[in-house]
């Protein structure tokens, strides 16, 4: 009895970490900067394609592609931020929605044009495949790796935002732009870097996730709902909130599917509704 339970907990937590990795970038751009960035998964998709191209066409090792996935997504986002996003920081949510949906359309069409509509083959190196058994619990290596990656990213982000000078500037700029500007903080610059950070994380999340969720041009739409669910239930402005919410969503989803498979497709939405009705601002939401 204990064996399956622990196994389900591990699988659920690992699934939650997958969701977290996909959405952590959004909890920066939407959560902290308050920009309705529906194009988040386009940046994730970009990261995925960078990883796939480097691995399959140039034979790079998987780990070497990860920094490039981050950088590529961040670099593209800097251009978009300077040209488009920046001008809408003070616009209505609805205009932000429309802009970013437009970007999603363009990115999906571009991906289909460049890479074709085909499902990209994603094969991980041998040492990340397979599984081992610990005390009767089956642990998949790649899932364990995802858990580690998610924990590392959370630690770095939370520490970086709480304990560094730049982190303090970001928090200041996000909380009160005018005051921050008055204190001599280059708000425009800080926003640009923060936005690049969020998009880079999206790219990284995308390249880590594709081994499980696959990659084709519709990626930018398919996972949008999931990342919105994680960020809203976690609460805007809180990386830790997204982490906890993703873990809870993952565990309840996998446990539910294991014990009550008839409810399989309803679970994640039911859990989200329950959490939001209990705490409309999200678990650790400030606004």
């Amino acid at each position: 009895m204990i064996g399956p339970l622990v196994g389900v907990l591990f699988d659920g937590f690992a699934y939650g970490m997958l969701l977290f990795l996909l959405s952590v970038g959004l909890s920066v751009t939407l959560g902290m900067m308050n920009f309705v960035n529906l194009a988040h998964c386009s940046f994730a998709m970009l990261g995925g394609y960078v990883t796939v191209s480097l691995m399959n066409d140039l034979g790079w090792p998987f780990f070497a592609t990860l920094p490039l996935a981050f950088l590529a997504a961040a670099a593209v986002s800097v251009v978009l931020e300077r040209v488009l996003y920046r001008r809408l920081y003070r616009a209505s949510d609805l205009d932000q929605c429309l802009l970013t949906i437009g970007i999603v359309f363009v990115s999906v069409a571009s991906a289909a044009y460049i890479y074709g509509t085909v499902q990209q083959p994603v094969q991980m190196p041998d040492y990340l495949q397979g599984s081992f058994v610990v005390m009767g619990v089956n642990i998949a290596v790649y899932r364990l790796f995802l858990v580690g990656a998610a924990l590392a990213i959370t630690l770095i982000l939370v520490a970086g935002l709480e304990y560094t000078r730049f982190g303090a500037q970001v928090r200041a700029a996000v909380d009160n732009q005018r005051m921050a500007r008055g204190l001599g903080i280059n708000v425009g610059g800080v926003f640009a870097v923060t936005f690049a950070l969020g998009s880079g994380l999206a790219g990284l999340g995308g390249s880590l996730a594709i081994a499980i969720v696959g990659l084709d041009p519709s990626f930018a739409f398919t996972y949008l709902i999931y990342v919105l669910i994680v960020v809203s239930t976690g609460g805007l402005g809180s990386i830790g909130g997204s982490f906890v919410a993703a873990a809870l969503l993952g565990i309840s989803d996998v446990a539910g599917k294991y014990y009550v498979p008839q409810l399989g497709s309803f679970l994640i939405y039911l859990v989200m509704l329950g959490m939001l009705m209990w705490r409309p601002a999200g678990l650790f939401g400030k606004r």
């Binding site: 802009l99 437009g102 359309f105 069409a109």
Partner: peptide, 16 residues
């Protein structure tokens, strides 16, 4: 195959 590219451009242009 790629019509939605132009729809996307149209949406961005309208917002801008």
């Amino acid at each position: 195959q790629y019509w939605y590219f132009w729809i996307g451009i149209m949406l961005i242009a309208v917002v801008m």
